[in-house]
Design a protein around this nucleic acid. Structure first.
Lengths: 146, 146
DNA sequence: TAAGAAAACGCAAAAGTGTTGCGTTTATTA
DNA sequence: TAATAAACGCAACACTTTTGCGTTTTCTTA
């Protein structure tokens, strides 16, 4: 896809077939992926080392970022490509992980508001993981208030 | 210490010397611990497998819980012993990871307020990871507002 | 408090995740 | 299109975590 090639160029990454496909997978999934999941999506036809190196490269160039995972695996999400670059990552969104179907959903900025931390720490970045039951697995609405 | 033995009993864990000492370490620790850090605190005199099994047991019984770590290692913190049990963990608080010293701090409920999710998902637990510079590494105050 | 049952332990081995070195292939550039 | 740089595959390695098994310790209860 032409769009993906342009993005790779813009972020200074060589346009190999694998990296075009990898970016495409991130666009399709719109959430986070483990190296294992990526390996599976390529039907194990690609070397794992290649995946690890591509992910490291994508991350350094500001295309994807790591997301903490429940099982402590390396997991990556597509960045907001307008606000991330090799110089700085800026992520202001959360993820929702379903207990039942294990899917990960992206939550856009407006769903979450973090009012303040009074801890005295200097916050440079944040990452929010919500866990529970997704809309499909439990079709009711909730307002979560702390 | 008598208090620690009582807690182990209450959570249905056998009171071996190692597990008493391990619980004691968690009480002493301000933030969270990796298996490696625990191994070090026992001067490498205890088998690593024993540590892994004790942590798994403590977690299942509701005594400790996993916290996210920058380097994707398993890291554990003491639970709020009044709200966690073998049946359910209730962690609605954030973690702060320091860029400088790599420590993970638990932020209690009052420091963070999540106003709402309008996503339609049912939120059972949440995990908020804040990244930046901790009080010790950069001794100034901050209010973080989104 | 002694005996049987259950849990915890140590050791060795293995599984899983991620990294490094190196020679080859592919893409970029000029 | 030739030289340079980046990406790739393979093999080996490092590290964290898990599993199997026989032994030791703790718990239960009679």
């Amino acid at each position: 896809m032409k769009k993906h090639k342009e993005i790779l160029s813009r972020f200074g990454i060589n346009k190999t077939q694998f990296r075009i496909d990898l970016l495409s997978i991130f666009f399709d999934c719109k959430s986070s992926l483990t190296t294992h999941e990526i390996f599976e999506r390529f039907n194990k036809k690609i070397n794992k080392v290649t995946i690890y190196r591509a992910l490291k490269s994508f991350e350094q160039k500001g295309l994807i970022h790591q997301v903490p995972d429940k099982n402590n695996l390396k997991k990556y999400s597509l960045c907001n490509l307008d606000s991330c670059s090799p110089d700085s990552h800026n992520h202001q969104h959360g993820h929702f992980i379903c207990y039942s179907c294990d899917q990960t959903f992206c939550l856009d900025d407006s769903t979450i508001k973090i009012i303040k931390t009074s801890s005295g720490h200097i916050v440079k970045n944040y990452n929010l993981i919500l866990e529970g039951y997704c809309t499909d697995c439990n079709s009711s609405q909730t307002i979560f208030q702390n």
